[in-house]
């Protein structure tokens, strides 16, 4: 990159290095686009600082060896694990830790084969694709199936462990999944636990945060809530949170998708000519038509 920020007296200008890395741009973007997730954001900031200092040390000739930056993201569905992983790849690339900064998403299917000798080439192929970037393994605990001792997942785990150790220069591995099952997974595979330096826990969103997410999504898709539909949606969320299969931001997105459907239907049925504002407005009725309002809370559908 650029020359060391070192003035003649041997002082290193941290502010200049920080500005020059443009890392605050990425972090601000993270703050703006992702609602809540304070502990995660703090941790990302810390990692960014660590990398910045590591780079300055490297320039000054203080070799501390290669940092291990493999991570595990745990949290309930829809808490933003994949989104943060994508941002993380960008940040790591920006700070020069990985060479390309792309994200390769893999699940058990992409790593584990179906017959003897099928697993190693598959895993190797994924590792090769992820080189220079981040390998994101979603629902990592599916790799390990203790009930079947001849399961090929173990082979993939061994290859991953080896690559995480020997090819630290080439990629970063992020393991993701639900909290409790990841804990069991790490207990059963102590090798993973010791090679993963950063454990990030994604908290569930509060009702307030969910509403902020909904506002953000509605805005991005060029729709608007009116004075009645916004409180109605908040009420919807209050009820939806208590129902089973609630998946945080993902449920909000699904709900909005269905509201859009109802809005379109309403407009078509209504016919005639409408204003542009009417085309973007979400009506109270669009929200209230949801099955969540229909009654008993024992409904399991995602309506």
């Amino acid at each position: 990159m650029t020359e060391p920020n070192q003035n003649p007296s041997g002082q290193i200008d941290l502010d200049a290095a920080y500005r020059e890395s443009k890392i605050d741009l990425l972090l601000d973007e993270l703050n703006r686009d992702l609602v809540g997730l304070t502990p995660v954001k703090t941790r990302v900031r810390e990692i960014a600082a660590l990398l910045l200092i590591a780079r300055l040390r490297e320039r000054a000739g203080l070799d501390a060896g290669r940092l291990s930056l493999h991570m595990s993201f745990t949290g309930n569905p829809g808490t933003g694990k994949t989104t943060v992983a994508m941002r993380m790849a960008k940040i790591l690339h920006h700070l020069g830790y990985v060479r390309k900064g792309h994200l390769v998403v893999a699940t058990r299917d992409d790593l584990v084969g179906q017959y003897v000798g099928h697993t190693a080439p598959k895993t190797k192929e994924m590792l090769k694709k992820a080189m220079g970037g981040v390998l994101f393994i979603d629902e990592a605990y599916y790799l390990y199936r203790p009930e079947n001792e001849r399961d090929y997942g173990q082979e993939a785990i061994e290859m991953l462990l080896q690559a995480m150790e020997n090819q630290r220069d080439d990629f970063v591995v992020i393991l993701a999944g639900y909290r409790d099952r990841m804990d069991t997974f790490f207990q059963a595979n102590p090798g993973f636990h010791s090679r993963v330096a950063h454990h990030l826990d994604f908290p569930d969103y509060s009702l307030d945060e969910l509403m902020q997410i909904a506002d953000l999504m509605v805005d991005l898709q060029h729709y608007t809530f009116d004075d009645h539909s916004r409180p109605a949606f908040l009420e919807y969320l209050e009820r939806r949170v208590l129902q089973p299969h609630f998946a945080n931001a993902r449920s909000v997105r699904n709900a909005l998708d269905r509201i859009k459907l109802r809005q379109a239907n309403r407009l078509v049925r209504q016919g005639g000519s409408i204003s542009l504002a009417e085309l973007t407005r979400i009506d109270d009725a669009d929200v209230r038509a949801s099955r969540v309002f229909a009654g008993s809370s024992d409904q399991t559908s995602d309506g």
């Binding site: 090769k128 080189m131 220069d169």
Partner: peptide, 14 residues
């Protein structure tokens, strides 16, 4: 043939 590879390190390994 090696498709979808982003980084030369993977090809150097092969």
């Amino acid at each position: 043939p090696m498709f979808d590879i982003k980084d030369p390190a993977a090809i150097m390994q092969t």
